[in-house]
């Protein structure tokens, strides 16, 4: 069964601009569902969704779980630790066993790039990526796009700069695809050691100094600096990183315009971002979290549906029946 999005959502690279806009437009009414006295609609009643998390995650897993529950789906969480995965079961075997229990969808977070697509090609259930290796984190980029659109009323023509560890970041990759497909200009800024080679080939502007990026951009999306990178020799020290690339209030005050500040979380305050910036008036970091639930509801709803060609019948005048 395929839908307007296809069977699976593994990344934004494969989606058309129209498909991305469809998800964002569908997310709009789902925001209101979370404001209702009873935060639940029966759209996915009777569907069973397995959240298969092979990597630690708090925000993304909880956000997916809220989205599923607010759509009335039945959910099961499987974490790699404490499951048969630890006993050496392969990904496909795990998924096939789950599928034998008649599930409808799998949300997967996995440390290997391509794991979501690999799984999607081997099971009948819809697969939604919640982040795979250094590949993509599509729902994070979709919620970033929705938050930018809310704040600026548009995406096309905006200048959005991703700051920090672009090399290891699936959030950055998904954002680059999504933003460029919707007509934004994308910049990247960070130390050479944390920039993938050939990043300019993706059509992004490369900034070597954070001051230049701040002068150029309308929106800064500050990526999390994973502290283990320091031990691996990518940066000399956390303090030096903050001194050279930290998004501080002093740096932002020199900008020609007020920049919208985003962060996918969890934040390292005083490493990649200044607390006064994270909690400042132009920060939309908590709006991102709110929008995450709505975007994930939209994705699950669109993937769960049947045949879109029949939906056309509902569009004719007086055709609410």
């Amino acid at each position: 069964m395929t839908t307007a999005l296809g069977k699976d959502l593994v990344g934004l690279e494969r989606l058309s601009p129209d498909q991305i806009r469809l998800i964002l437009d569908t997310a709009e009414p789902f925001k209101e569902v979370s404001e209702r006295p009873i935060k639940k609609v029966p759209a996915l009643r009777g569907k069973t969704i397995v959240n298969l998390f092979f990597e630690a995650s708090t925000r993304t897993r909880i956000s997916f779980e809220f989205a599923e529950k607010r759509l009335s789906a039945d959910t099961v969480n499987v974490a790699a630790s404490g499951s048969s995965v630890q006993k050496g079961e392969t990904l496909v075997d795990t998924a096939r066993n789950l599928e034998a229990m008649r599930i409808d969808m799998v949300v997967i977070r996995h440390p290997s790039s391509g794991a979501a697509e690999f799984l999607g090609n081997r099971i009948r259930s819809n697969v939604v990526s919640a982040g795979d290796g250094k590949h993509e984190h599509p729902t994070q980029a979709l919620l970033d796009l929705l938050t930018i659109r809310d704040k600026h009323g548009k995406i096309a023509g905006l200048k959005v700069c991703l700051v920090g560890d672009v090399l290891h970041s699936r959030v950055a990759r998904s954002n680059i695809w999504g933003l460029s497909k919707l007509g934004a200009e994308v910049g990247v800024c960070g130390p050479d050691t944390l920039m993938p080679r050939g990043i300019e080939d993706l059509g992004v502007c490369r900034f070597r100094r954070i001051e230049e990026a701040i002068e150029w951009a309308d929106v800064l999306n500050v990526l999390r600096l994973q502290l283990e990178r320091m031990e691996m020799g990518f940066i000399p020290s956390v303090r030096e990183y903050y001194r050279v690339f930290g998004v501080t209030l002093e740096r932002l005050e020199k900008a020609p315009r007020a920049l919208t500040i985003m962060h996918p979380g969890p934040m390292n305050r005083g490493v990649e971002i200044d607390s006064r910036v994270a909690d400042g008036p132009h920060s939309v970091i908590l709006d991102q979290v709110t929008n995450g639930v709505a975007v994930r509801m939209a994705v699950l709803y669109l993937l769960a549906g049947g045949r879109p060609e029949l939906a056309d019948a509902a569009k004719r005048p007086g055709g609410t029946e």
């Binding site: 307007a4 569908t26 549906g305 029949l310 019948a313």
Partner: peptide
């Protein structure tokens, strides 16, 4: 939802 599919724009 199964037969008709998701409605493109929800009001």
């Amino acid at each position: 939802l199964e037969t008709v599919g998701p409605k493109p724009v929800i009001g």
